[in-house]
């Protein structure tokens, strides 16, 4: 499958990645080779097969919504690249 520049730009938006021109060319090549390779799956007739997300059946696990951990704001914020007044600091998003 041929991957166009438009596709790479679009996938870059979805992936929140900003690729350099060189990286884009490489990504085009890598992705089209990979998609050619995985197209091998089309050899299989899967029309009557149900898609399986987990190998075993799982049921929803319910529990009472009880708080068991403590407020760890200070330690959590220590990991933030930037913080202000006990909150994460991000670039201005609206005026």
């Amino acid at each position: 499958m041929t991957i166009t520049d438009e596709t790479i730009d679009y996938v870059g938006i979805l992936a929140k990645l900003e690729l350099s021109e060189e990286e884009k060319q490489q990504a085009k090549k890598d992705m089209s080779e990979m998609l050619d390779y995985v197209s091998k799956l089309n050899e299989l007739d899967t029309e009557h097969v149900e898609a399986m997300s987990h190998a075993f059946p799982y049921n929803n696990v319910f529990r009472e919504d009880v708080v068991t951990n403590q407020n760890d704001r200070e330690n959590l914020l220590k990991n933030a690249p930037e913080q202000k007044d006990g909150c994460y600091k991000v670039p201005k998003t609206f005026d």
Partner: peptide, 23 residues
């Protein structure tokens, strides 16, 4: 990049769902 592509609209069934069936 590959993961974002196979999950994107228009390709989701052809790649991702197909792979889950093969699984």
């Amino acid at each position: 990049m590959l993961g974002s592509f196979v999950l994107s609209s228009g390709y989701y069934d052809a790649y991702y769902v197909k792979a889950l069936k093969v699984k």
